[in-house]
């Protein structure tokens, strides 16, 4: 069998039974895989801890990495950290975006609050808030938004959708070049056509540097649980940085188990 691993980052193609066309087929497959993998040269699918550069490439939902991304919270209390993580994807473009939110999500988690958003470097005036009464209307609104050329992105929060519906949205997003972000709070992730899925949960943070009893910068854990671009599942502890209005890798405590950290901060309670 010919050597097919042109790109070292690619997982090896499983050896097939030798046959007349098998080698040729394997070669073609490898070629296709190599083309698909282009643009992901900085990836570390070997499981190494990614450096800051590749992490920002990964965390930012970039167009060459698909048009539909999902921030998923398993528990209700993780919903707002997941939202904060998702806002990262919206921050750079100054154009308005559509935020379609289900009535259930509004009831459970309230509305996005402008003064808090502004403090995180996101202009609340960019929000176009849509609160449809029915899920079907919500999907329609998302699709309309994706077709509009003036939006930077479209966000769906707490919407129930089937695989076919999410695939349809992903296709519309791709066709019109507008990103679609989903914010989901379900006990178990639903099957969907999303390109990447991040599970976000709150993490105990470090104390405020000026006041040991006060909460410091927000910290959350983002776990990549699905990525169609070939990234392996990986977990990052991120800390909010007020100066840059971005999350960065929570470096000092990244490798320490959260329990130890909680224990350390106990004495202030």
């Amino acid at each position: 069998m010919k050597s097919v691993a042109r790109n070292d980052n690619l997982p090896p193609v499983p050896a097939s039974r030798p046959g007349p066309g098998a080698a040729r087929l394997a070669g073609l497959k490898a070629e296709v895989a190599a083309i698909e993998a282009r643009g992901h040269r900085l990836s570390e699918p070997d499981g190494k801890t990614p450096g800051p550069v590749s992490l920002s490439r990964l965390v930012e939902a970039r167009p060459d990495q698909g048009w539909m991304h999902e921030a998923w919270a398993e528990k209700p209390v993780d919903h707002v950290p997941a939202m904060a993580f998702l806002l990262n994807w919206l921050r750079d473009d100054g154009r308005p975006f559509l935020w379609v939110v289900s009535p259930t999500a509004v009831r459970e988690h309230g509305l996005p609050y402008g003064p808090g958003l502004a403090a995180q470097g996101l202009d609340p005036g960019r929000f176009i808030l849509v609160r449809p009464r029915k899920d079907q209307d919500a999907l329609w609104a998302l699709e309309e938004g994706l077709r509009s050329p003036a939006l930077s992105a479209v966000v769906g929060e707490g919407l129930a959708m089937e695989l076919a519906e999410s695939r349809r949205l992903a296709l519309v997003a791709k066709d019109h070049g507008t990103a679609c972000f989903l914010l989901q709070r379900t006990a178990r992730p639903a099957a969907s056509a999303t390109y990447s899925r991040w599970q976000v949960r709150a993490m105990p943070g470090a104390p405020d540097p000026h006041d040991a009893r006060a909460p410091g910068p927000a910290r959350l854990q983002a776990r990549l649980v699905k990525h169609r671009g070939g990234y392996r599942p990986q977990t990052h502890d991120l800390e909010w940085q007020d100066a840059t209005h971005h999350f960065r890798v929570a470096a000092p405590l990244a490798d320490r188990p959260p329990a130890a950290e909680t224990g350390a901060s106990r004495h202030v309670g």
């Binding site: 939202m83 904060a84 806002l87 309230g110 509305l111 996005p112 808090g116 995180q120």
Partner: peptide, 9 residues
């Protein structure tokens, strides 16, 4: 002073 990202109804 810091304000939350979400405000309950």
């Amino acid at each position: 002073a810091p304000r939350p990202l979400r405000l309950l109804m």
